[in-house]
């Protein structure tokens, strides 16, 4: 496992380290946990990233090539965020970074030190769904469900951004998320319903 520690008071301040720098810094108070080599393969470099994911502090020792999407899916087992194209073209991988929606497939995890990431798994409070999630269920704003995490994350953000004023505005601001099943009108209804609740 590349994941080293969590929930144990690691500083949330972001830092990026190469493995060499990690060794040099190993003894300093700034960095109590030097990066270990990955368990299986040995990438040329390892980057240590401390960030917050769904309210929990996480420190990851990562191959610098790892995208936020793959960090979530492969390292943190947060597979709710989907890989539809891996090119920033479909929106299925949409998450929030410091409250802003980003395409996690185009975001390198190594650059996220100190940031707070929210994924679809982080919206509900226990068993209580987020109003947007409830509205997607009630309005049938989904079919196959694969684009749904991205749609939900975009919907949460656009309501917060104040871009859910009219049907036309919702459609425009939801247009970065492709739904091949064609649940668009139900998605629009869900956004409107959630906005009224908000």
């Amino acid at each position: 496992m590349e994941e080293q520690s969590q929930d144990d008071g690691v500083s949330r301040r972001g830092f990026l380290l190469t493995s060499a720098a990690a060794a040099a810094l190993a003894a300093t108070a700034e960095n109590p946990r030097p990066a270990a080599a990955a368990a299986t393969a040995a990438p040329a470099e390892v980057v240590e990233v401390a960030l917050e994911v769904n309210g929990k502090a996480r420190t990851l020792a990562l191959d610098p090539r790892v995208t936020l999407l793959d960090a979530l899916r492969e390292r943190l087992d947060l597979t709710g965020t989907k890989k539809g194209c891996d090119r920033g073209q479909c929106g299925a991988c949409t998450v929030h970074v410091d409250g802003r929606r980003v395409l996690s497939c185009l975001t390198l995890a190594a650059g996220l030190g100190g940031k707070a990431v929210t994924t679809v798994e982080g919206l509900a409070e226990g068993d209580r769904l987020h109003p947007v999630q409830r509205a997607f269920v009630a309005c049938d704003g989904l079919q196959c469900g694969f684009c749904t995490p991205g749609q939900v994350m975009s919907a949460v953000a656009l309501i917060e951004e104040g871009h859910a004023g009219s049907e036309a505005e919702i459609r425009e601001y939801m247009s970065g998320n492709i739904c091949r099943c064609g649940a668009y009108q139900q998605i629009v209804q869900a956004v409107r319903m959630a906005k009224e609740e908000a």
Binding site: D77, T79, K83, V137, V152
Partner: peptide, 22 residues
């Protein structure tokens, strides 16, 4: 009736093929 798989799909709990890790 609401889709019974909707809750799993809006929370990210639904595991599709590539979401499995062994």
């Amino acid at each position: 009736m609401d889709r019974i798989d909707a809750r799993a799909k809006v929370t990210g709990a639904a595991r599709y093929s590539a979401d499995h890790k062994l």
